[in-house]
């Protein structure tokens, strides 16, 4: 019995710990596992989650994207401001294209010119922050007319499920399929797992990395649309620090920063864990920042256990 439990813990340590945590909170706070609270948590994590979907592709391809936080800020400002100027339809199109362009720039430098991903996206973080201030003139923007269908993305709902959750779930399903079942997804794994072998197999690693960054820009644009619609405005600091939270979610799910392994399902799990930890601790009466301490412990433990399990398997 204890042996089985040890094996279970080693293989699914993270899930077991998470389940224990859920049970613990559920006992302490009745409101925790009610449908409305669960939906509320999911709604809260959907923006981080949306960004994490694209970043997962970048990380599985063995790269990093630290620019998504400031990209979110810029794109939120753009979508809000352009909605006021053009109306929602065109604004959303412009935002998606802008996200794609920002991702393409990262992809060009990291993928095609093979520059260090950390520095390129760090430079992009700084550059986009500047661009945001230049665009907004330093002041916050607000949606002038709150009655258009633009409000639907952040505030609407479908069959009682909040719209952000619907968008996040659909995107996750589509991208899980793309990563797991398509040529592109397979190429991502190959490039992240062994770039040389992928090249010898006729796969153009430069193009694959480029595409991964484009996707990351695109999911960040969708996140920005949800954000703009929910807040009905945009501040110049709205996405600050998100890049690290997004990475934390991806890592927490168990996707390795070394590339070549991971999945969308894991990322959704990781992001959801971040949300439920935050919510559970709040319901138990802890201040919100206690979640950060818990996240620290969980990241270290989860990755450590995962590494240990992999080492054990290779040796066995």
């Amino acid at each position: 019995m204890s042996l089985h439990f040890a094996a279970l813990l080693r293989r699914h340590g993270l899930l077991v710990a998470f389940a224990l945590f859920l049970a613990l909170v559920a006992v302490q706070a009745e409101a925790f596992l009610t449908p409305s609270n669960v939906l509320d948590v999911l709604r809260q994590v959907s923006i981080i989650g949306m960004m994490a979907l694209g970043v997962t592709f970048v990380v599985v391809a063995g790269r990093l994207d630290l620019s998504v936080g400031s990209m979110l800020t810029l794109l939120t400002v753009i979508v809000v401001d352009r909605t006021n100027a053009f109306g929602p339809g065109l604004a959303i199109l412009v935002t998606l294209l802008a996200g794609l362009a920002a991702g393409a720039w990262n992809g060009l430098l990291v993928g095609v010119f093979r520059l260090n991903a950390l520095i390129v996206t760090l430079a992009m973080l700084s550059f986009l922050q500047g661009l945001t201030l230049a665009y907004s003139g330093g002041s916050n923007v607000n949606v002038a007319d709150g009655t258009t269908w633009f409000a639907a993305f952040g505030r609407g709902s479908l069959w009682g499920i909040p719209a952000p959750v619907v968008i996040f779930a659909l995107s996750a399903a589509v991208l899980a399929f793309v990563l797991k079942r398509t040529r592109f997804g397979r190429a991502i794994f190959a490039v992240g797992g062994n770039e040389t072998a992928a090249t010898y197999s006729g796969i153009d690693a430069r193009l694959v990395v480029f595409a991964a960054y484009c996707l990351s820009g695109l999911t960040t644009a969708i996140a920005a649309i949800i954000m703009g619609s929910r807040v009905m405005g945009a501040q110049n600091t709205i996405g600050q620090g998100y890049e690290l939270t997004v990475l934390a979610g991806v890592i927490l799910g168990g996707t390795s920063l070394l590339g070549g392994s991971g999945s969308i399902g894991r990322t959704v799990l990781g992001v959801a864990m971040l949300g439920f930890i935050q919510n559970g601790l709040l319901l138990m009466g802890y201040p919100y920042y206690v979640q950060w301490l818990v996240t620290w412990g969980i990241i270290i433990l989860a990755v450590w256990i995962d590494l240990g399990a992999k080492r054990g398997r290779i040796l066995a």
Binding site: L244, L293, T295
Partner: peptide
Amino acid sequence: LSGMHSFVVTLGALIGIRGLVFVYTGE
């Protein structure tokens, strides 16, 4: 000791230590 990438380890620490700061100062 773990062989983890320092990026992951210190990313966790960044989040956690900030939590310590808030716990100590009460925000």
